[in-house]
Structure formats: structure tokens, C-alpha cells
Design a protein around this nucleic acid. Structure first.
Lengths: 260, 260
DNA sequence: CGTGTCGTTGAGCGCTTTCAACCCTGGTGG
DNA sequence: CCACCAGGGTTGAAAGCGCTCAACGACACG
């Protein structure tokens, strides 16, 4: 349902009385002191975004920290050919914009709501004031950025793989739980098109690779739900030009030891 | 020149008396208090690495912060097919390892000396103690990681470009100084092979793209020194399969408006 | 003058992209 | 209840681009 333009980005959906409870339950604010939460709840603004509405553009100014109350935001670098290189998908309780606010740098990506979303907007001045007056908070933020940097490097590693099969294998194996040796289930955290953009693939190639893995028996797929049958085999799968000729694949399956 | 194995990683090259002055001049320690510097100089160890010697392996433990006193370190993700995806080149006065030390996570890349190098090794306990006891230092580190995260995103943007020509163009334009509209000079900060690894290209492709840009008149190259003739033109260059057939390129140069 | 490192060039293959059409599902309104 | 539509996903055919392997050239060093 489209929202009237004037309604964008300034709706107040949660009554002030309940806002404190709501944000107190968000993962981002875990461990904050009561007085800090109260100040943030009093000073922060709420932002409502319709699906596909843009919060910021690459190169623009980002003068606030945002915390996702509900919905999902998509951070991506727009490429020639209308493709998107997805940097991060930000879900409920996660934050975005720390680096830009702290350094005053222009936003390095486009930010768009991938679903109808509800954000908390913490002004740059407010944010920096809270950090400055509480070393504990500064340290927490330091750990947050360290974690995000390592996450980004993991993405880089995935994208560095040469073939699509290797990329998808690396990506899926990220979700393997502790102790799950060979089999596990997972759910894709976004549209396949966005996952593809995260792996540096076109959605068509991503689709083909998944279909190939299903044919090989390495995974089983039903909508967004994926069951990995052979985690060890995934990493070593040979992408031998196989996902173009279904019939040639059938032969290969019979030649090689079946994975299922 | 090979160094005796026992000599690796424990040589003391700078007398204690001069160490304090030496590290005080490094960019990383800019703004540190005298007493902090003194403690670090007293407790840190010096590490000498021969060219191509490894400091840490991907997946291994990294239990110290390192600051480059001299030389250059190469951080990269090893790929099947013996290729390297270079994450970062760390030069004099720069540091590495913050995220791993702070989070206790395994090292996300291999670390190898790309030249004979001299490092300062600050133990994890020492490092965390200094951070814990000085909020100013914590805040400085926070800004450092924010900067590094944005730098990593810029690398991601470069690597996300579809064609090699676009990658190289993006990479070169990074070095454009303020106010330099169309022309500027720069020096490649490492071996071409490592730059290629940073762009997600093979060294052969990188070489071919540079040769193509020279033929087009977009740049001029002499060893590691590159002069960009037409910054605006670089970004819009069409990679039309041209760097495979030199004679076909010649025609294109005459058809299109010459860039030089 | 050998030797090793670094960079360049050539030929061929293979993977990914591109553009296109098609399928499938859920929501909507008559 | 069903026709219709939009969004998301799948599949096909063709072409482009980069990788691989190999050989060669340039240069510094001992």
C-alpha cells in the first residue's frame, strides 16, 4: 500500500510511552544503562519507510545512526548495468551508519528498505555525546565495528572465489551450526536476487548454480529453505561447466560417487 | 638473503634506548601520551621478518597487535589455484590485527612480509590494558576501525565492477588529488602482481588492461609511475573486447575522439 | 654472465553475463 | 469462483571477458 509522500520518514508509530520498552528489547541496546536508553528514547525520531523507499544515497550525507525496529534494510553499491552489489542486509535490532557518523564521511552505499520498515533515528550529535560520556559504550561500539569488519572480510573471501559454485558453497557453509558435521538446514535471509547480489553474481547464475547443486544431490531446496546434504562435498565440488548441459550432468553424477 | 631459522621473529634490531624515539615518530602512535609510549616500548617485542616470511596463517590465532616499523606486510586470502586475494598492504607506521585481538577471533587472512620488514609486537594483554585504562585511546581506535571499514568498502566497490577496465579505472581514480580535474600522477604502492590481487584480477589481465589504457592514450606508464591523462574519460571507457586485438584497437582510437 | 624475480604477450577454454521468454505464486477485483 | 496482474524465480541461447598455461623479455643481483 503506497503511503502519501508527506507521510514518509516522519511517522510516529509507537507511542512515546511504549517506545522505551520497545527499543530496550532490541539487540543493539543490550547492556545500555537505563538513563542512556531514556535519553535516546526521548531524543530519537522514528522513521517509517515503505518497501523500496530510499533512506540514503551513495555519496550523500548520513548524519544519524539508525537502528532497525522492524523490517529490513538493504545496503548496496549501485553498478552500471543496473545491478546491485549488496554489502549488508540489516534486520531487526541491528544498526547501520556508525562509520559515517563517527568520521563524517559520505555514505559508501545506497540504503533502501527491502521490506516496509520502521527505524529509530539517533542524531549524530546525540550519538556522539552518549559515546563521549560513557567509555563502556565506546568500547562496545569498538567491538561492534571490529565484528563488522571481520564480517565484511568474510564476504570478501566469498566474493573472491572464482566460480559461482565455489561462491555459493562458501556462502552456504557459513550457516553450518556448530557440531553439524555433514547435514543441516537453513533459510535464505532475503530474496534470492539480493543474495546473488551479495555474492557478486547475477540472479540467473545464482539460480543455475543452486539448480546444479540440487541435481548433484548436494542440497535440497524448497522455496527459501535449503537442506545441505553433504557439507564436506560442497567445498570440493567441481564446477566443470556442468550447469549448462543438464544431460551432461546426469552422466557426471553417475561417473562420480553420488553425493546424496 | 636467507636468515637462519632461529633468527626469525625474535631479532632485536633497535637498541632499547632508541626504540622510544623510533616508535614515537610512527603515525600509529601519533597523539599517545608519554607514559603510554614508555610502557609500550618497555613491554613490546621487536620482530624481524625476511622477505616472503609468514607472520600468521588464515584461521590461526593472532594474539598481538603489530605496528610496521619498516618494510611492508601483505594481508591476503589464499585461493585455490594459488592465487591471492590481497586485502590490504600495510606500510610503515600502520598497524594490523586490531579486530582479531579485540574479539579473539581467528585471523581472517594470511600475513606475509612483502619486503624485509621490522615490526613492533604488542601483546594482546598489554594492548587491551592500555585501551581499557584510557578512554581517549579507545576512541582513537574506534575511529581507526571505522576508517578501515570504509576503506574496505571502497575496495569492495572496486572489485564489484564487472570488467577489468572498470576495476582499474576505479582503482586509479582513487589516487586523484583534490582539485586535480583531469590529469595527475601516481605511483603504484606495490608490485603489480599484488595490485592485481587487490583488484581481483590475475596479473596477466592487469597487465593487459594497463597496456590497453596506454594504447587508448588514457594513461602513460613508466615502471611503477603512472600519469593519468584523462580522469573523466577513464570512468567511461568502454571495455569492448579491445585489449585482445591490438590492431582492432588502433581503429577504435581513430574512430573515437582521441583522448590524449 | 648465470640466476631469479617481475612483467609482458599469445592462444584457447570456460564461466558468467546478457537478453529473452516462460513459469509460478499470491493478491485483487469483478 | 475465476480472470487478471505483478513480483519473484527459472530456463535457454549467444557472446563477451577473464583465467590458465606457456613462452618470452627486462632488470637487478651476486
Amino acid at each position: 500500500m503506497p503511503i502519501a509522500p508527506g507521510h514518509y520518514m516522519n511517522a510516529l508509530h509507537i507511542p512515546i510511552a511504549h517506545l522505551l520498552d520497545t527499543i530496550g528489547r532490541l539487540a543493539y541496546f543490550k547492556g545500555w544503562r537505563a538513563d542512556q536508553l531514556a535519553r535516546v528514547a526521548a531524543e530519537a525520531h522514528q522513521v517509517a519507510l515503505a518497501k523500496n523507499e530510499r533512506l540514503a544515497a551513495k555519496g550523500g550525507l548520513l548524519d544519524a545512526l539508525y537502528v532497525v525496529i522492524s523490517g529490513q534494510m538493504r545496503l548496496f553499491i549501485p553498478l552500471p548495468s543496473n545491478m546491485e552489489r549488496v554489502i549488508r542486509l540489516v534486520g531487526q535490532g541491528e544498526s547501520l551508519g556508525e562509520s559515517c557518523v563517527l568520521l563524517g564521511d559520505p555514505c559508501p552505499y545506497d540504503i533502501i528498505a527491502s521490506k516496509a520498515s520502521h527505524l529509530l533515528r539517533i542524531d549524530a550529535l546525540t550519538y556522539r555525546r552518549e559515546l563521549r560520556t560513557d567509555p563502556v559504550l565506546t568500547e562496545r561500539t569498538l567491538l561492534l565495528l571490529a565484528r563488522r569488519l571481520l564480517d565484511t572480510l568474510r564476504e570478501t573471501e566469498i566474493c573472491a572465489q572464482r566460480t559461482g559454485v565455489q561462491k555459493v558453497a562458501c556462502y552456504l557453509l557459513q550457516f553450518r551450526p556448530q557440531g553439524a558435521e555433514t547435514q543441516f538446514e537453513m533459510r535464505l535471509p532475503a530474496r534470492k536476487r539480493d543474495i546473488a547480489g551479495q555474492l557478486g553474481l547475477s540472479q540467473e547464475t545464482f539460480s543455475r548454480v543452486l539448480a546444479f547443486l540440487v541435481r548433484q544431490g548436494a542440497i535440497h531446496m524448497k522455496g527459501n529453505l535449503i537442506r545441505v546434504n553433504n557439507a564436506a562435498g560442497l567445498a570440493t565440488l567441481n564446477p566443470t561447466g556442468c550447469y549448462r548441459e543438464p544431460e551432461a550432468c546426469e552422466k557426471l553424477i553417475q561417473v562420480n560417487a553420488p553425493v546424496g
